[in-house]
Amino acid sequence: MFEARLVQSSILKKVLEAIKELLNEATFDCSDSGIQLQAMDNSHVSLVSLNLRSDGFDKYRCDRNLSMGINLASMSKIMKCAGNDDVLTMKAQDNADLVTFMFESQNQEKVMDYEMKLMNLDQEHLGIPETDYSCVIKLPSQEFARIVRDLSQFGESVVISCTKEGIKFSAGGDIGNANIKLAQTSNVDKDEDAVTIEMQEPVSLTFACRYLNSFAKATPLSPQVQLSMSADVPLVVEYKIGDIGHIRYYLAPKIED
């Protein structure tokens, strides 16, 4: 028996919005420790890794490990039926081919049950090596979304360069060139407005704009985003999900031949 209750169903709605542009389907691996998902996008350029810890749920029970293969467009249709303030409970029997999403209004006067068929998906989990990154940057997630959206107008790629002085995003194309520089903030009223840089070595890497724009769909999950970079390895874009977990996107760099 698997059962997971979340008072704020909006969290799962936002998680789904954050992954459904990159992935058509994915396996939600449920265990005693929580729910995890790892999947590459169709072109195998990026990888999504989601972790929702069991202790972050309002109620969580998972007697046996369960892999739920889910069509994300179908799940999205169901999650749209939930109000933001509804309480969500996901339920599945052991070895089930169905998962039930139950939504309850706060006053418990309306209860909705949606059953969704599960799929058998080929699972290929990749081992992600522990890495000490040369640069770790934290910045407001809305700022990051804005920057990648603005620079996408100039070209398909964005160069992200990090030095002690700051972080620079650059793009160029037929209409011209664009550069956006952010310095580390010295004094902000709110932590979520801060730009912080931890740098061991300066790094400059090139990435495809369209994936960064897809990652930015996670913006509503967290006021801050963390970018981790080292030379010639994938960028990590991480959004914390309240007290329950995180979503990490790994993006393979563009490299000169």
């Binding site: 590459m40 195998h44 350029v45 990026s46 990888l47 290929e124 989990h125 990749l126 081992g127 992600i128 090596p129 790629s157 090139t206 495809a208 390895v233 994938p234 790994y250 993006l251 393979a252 760099p253 563009k254 490299i255 000169e256 031949d257």
Partner: peptide, 14 residues
């Protein structure tokens, strides 16, 4: 122009 690499080039299959 730099070429797009695949994520599986960096991460190992078990």
């Amino acid at each position: 122009d730099p070429k797009q690499t695949k994520i599986s080039k960096f991460f190992t299959s078990p």
